[in-house]
Design a protein around this nucleic acid. Structure first.
Lengths: 222, 222
DNA sequence: CGACCCCTTGATTAGCCTCAACAACCGTGG
DNA sequence: CCACGGTTGTTGAGGCTAATCAAGGGGTCG
């Protein structure tokens, strides 16, 4: 059934706008390849990146509550996405309650990650915020690439890391070099290596939210 | 069906802990009366309030993804809540897809409100953050009390407003008096009156997320 | 080769935090 | 009834974190 949702493929190159803030959005997308980001623009010219979307993510769920999208979704790299419209999902709701409950659970988990980011930005230092973002990305990449990958190419400019953590690009730069100096991570270009995961997660106050419990789910229909 | 979820009632007095961060939580709650708040504690002693829960809210949805709750839920006033366990919701999933889709949509809307708060804290000034919280509360109270209520008793200490906006109590105090001085809101004790909604919402960069679209929902089963 | 983007670094500034003291209010118990 | 401690709100002074401003370097793409 999920495969059927991925029947259509759309290829996008870097910096393509998939969903535009304030405009009608009746489609959802499953990310199959590449990185995307969801963000909002503010009246004062600022931008806040809400989430980095990796392969396996469902993007555009807000179409389920609003006719017009509250956020912009843009590709960070060349990407392949699978569009389907929300009525398709309604069908899924009706016919496959167990699957739907799983999607619901994933959405709840995503909300928790957003909450973690909120706590990070609201109540921790710049260094901890950057560390937190790193933790989240590494943790989620482990789901995609396997549990041993402690080195990653992260296609984010420091400006974008700043927009995700509520900092300026200049200060992000200082914090990253700071973490490198202390031997917690290593970096060359956009490739990062996790040297001391314990310490990074400690400083970031990080909790892994990628394992979800499914024992409560309703049974499959047939 | 929803009435049946509210069959059991539990009365809690102020400052009661309903759900504890890190502890097993297999129950959900519908808020029937009173105010609650969801928050997390950080290693550095800080606290971040994620959401103010008002009557009509469903609290504890994170039980759908995690066996242990990622957040603490506490009453801000005496309150009446209706507990039901998550297997009940699984049943709802199976038998009433339309209703379930609606709950899903509500959860998505909640996520958008969280995202708005994130943008507010990450990218706007202290004054705008306080204004934003005010907007959200007034907007949601309008859903509960009718569209004309521009005066409200808000049972939050300035410390709590600070924990919701990522500020200190001291600075919250200054920002509130700031808004009062400028004739945007009025206050005596914890009673607030909205004097200039346009300006408050403008400064806060506020968008109302309480109206959700339901045209895509699957049909009712019978 | 030049234009542009991104990274890097230094100097200065501003916004919010910290610390501190006191007033107002509340529920409690004497 | 009042005394009391505890919580919350208020205000001022000073300090620190991160923003802003500015300049230059390196890489890439046309």
């Amino acid at each position: 059934m999920l495969d059927r949702l991925e029947a259509q493929q759309r290829h996008c190159r870097r910096d393509a706008v998939v969903i535009s803030e304030g405009e009608p959005a009746r489609e959802l997308y499953i990310v199959q390849k590449g990185w995307l980001q969801s963000s909002v623009l503010l009246g004062n010219g600022g931008r806040q990146i809400m989430r980095i979307n990796l392969p396996g993510d469902i993007v555009g769920l807000s179409a389920l509550a609003f006719d017009d999208s509250p956020e912009t979704v843009t590709t960070l790299t060349d990407a392949t996405i699978c569009p389907f419209d929300r009525e398709r999902l309604a069908l899924l709701f009706s016919e496959h309650p167990r699957l739907m409950a799983l999607v619901f659970a994933l959405n709840v988990a995503e909300r928790s990650q957003l909450a973690d980011r909120l706590a990070s930005i609201g109540r921790t230092s710049a260094r901890a915020r950057v560390a937190s973002l790193m933790c989240e990305i590494f943790s989620r990449l482990r789901l995609v690439n396997g549990p041993t990958s402690d080195v990653a190419h992260i296609p984010l400019t420091q400006e974008e890391i700043g927009d995700a953590t509520g900092l300026t690009a200049v200060h992000v730069n200082r914090m990253i070099r700071n973490l490198v100096e202390d031997g917690i991570i290593d970096r060359s270009g956009n490739s990062f290596r996790l040297l001391d995961r314990k310490r990074l997660e400690g400083e970031a106050n990080f909790t892994d939210r990628s394992k979800i419990g499914t024992s409560w789910l309703p049974p499959a229909r047939n």
